[in-house]
Simulated assay, not measured.
Amino acid sequence: MAEGRCNCGSIKVSMPSMPEQSAICYCANCRRAGGSIGSIVYILDSPQVTINDPNKYLKDYRDNDTKSGNPITRQFCSNCGCPITSVLAGDKIALKGGLFDKIPAPGFKSFEQEEPSWMKTV
């Protein structure tokens, strides 16, 4: 079992095991949502992810202004502001890699054309 948490520890997430690879999204919305050059995520089927939120701090933001045109529900901890997931079309979820102590190297990139020219990933 792989377990992660938000900064304040109010929201804990788990999945059956740590994926061998992560993904990185460079779209402007992921940059803004995470305050960084992109978002490291694990793309999983929703039933694979367990979110433990006993204090009901998990909040949703429906992001309709996406480059793909597909709305995304961005979930975050309302206590510490930590991004938790992005709920994608169908039964997919992008679980934020930063919730976990170890992050495997990205296996693929999304919106690679928006990757900063100075950025070099392995």
Rank of each mutant, 00 (worst) to 15 (best):
Q21L: 02
C8S: 03
D65W: 07
Y61L: 11
G97E: 04
V49A: 00
K102S: 15
M1R: 00
P71R: 09
N7F: 11
E112C: 14
R74N: 08
P104I: 14
K92V: 15
V87H: 13
A94D: 11
D65S: 13
N70Q: 12
C8Q: 00
I93V: 13
V87G: 11
D91C: 15
A2P: 07
P54E: 06
C82N: 07
C8N: 01
V41K: 01
Y42C: 14
P16C: 01
P16V: 02
N52W: 04
S110H: 12
D65Q: 11
K92N: 11
V41G: 03
K12I: 05
T50L: 06
K67A: 09
P116N: 08
A2S: 10
Y57W: 09
S110T: 14
Y57T: 13
I103D: 04
Q75C: 12
Q75R: 13
I93D: 03
R62S: 13
L44F: 04
Y42H: 14
I103T: 14
C25D: 00
G35E: 00
G90D: 14
T73V: 15
S68C: 09
G69M: 05
N7W: 07
S14K: 05
G97W: 03
I103M: 11
C27I: 05
R74Y: 10
A2H: 06
Q113R: 09
C82P: 06
A23S: 08
Y26N: 06
G97N: 05
G107A: 14
Y26W: 09
C6L: 02
V49I: 07
P16W: 01
D45T: 10
G38S: 03
P19E: 04
G107L: 12
G81Y: 09
I51S: 02
T121Y: 08
D63V: 10
C25H: 05
L44V: 08
D63L: 15
L88N: 10
E20N: 12
K96S: 15
S117P: 02
E20M: 04
P83E: 10
V49E: 05
A33H: 03
A94K: 06
P47F: 13
E114Q: 15
V122N: 05
S17K: 02
A33L: 00
P106W: 05
V122L: 08
R31L: 05
N64P: 11
N79M: 07
Q113P: 15
F100Y: 02
G69Q: 04
S110M: 12
F108K: 00
F108Q: 01
R31A: 06
I51A: 03
L58H: 06
K56P: 06
D65A: 13
V13K: 00
P54V: 09
S110V: 15
M119E: 04
S68H: 10
D91S: 15
S78G: 15
A23Q: 02
R5V: 02
R32M: 09
S17T: 08
K59L: 09
Y42A: 14
K92A: 13
F76Y: 14
R5N: 07
P54M: 08
Q48G: 06
V49C: 10
G34Y: 00
N64G: 14
G97V: 12
S39W: 01
S14A: 10
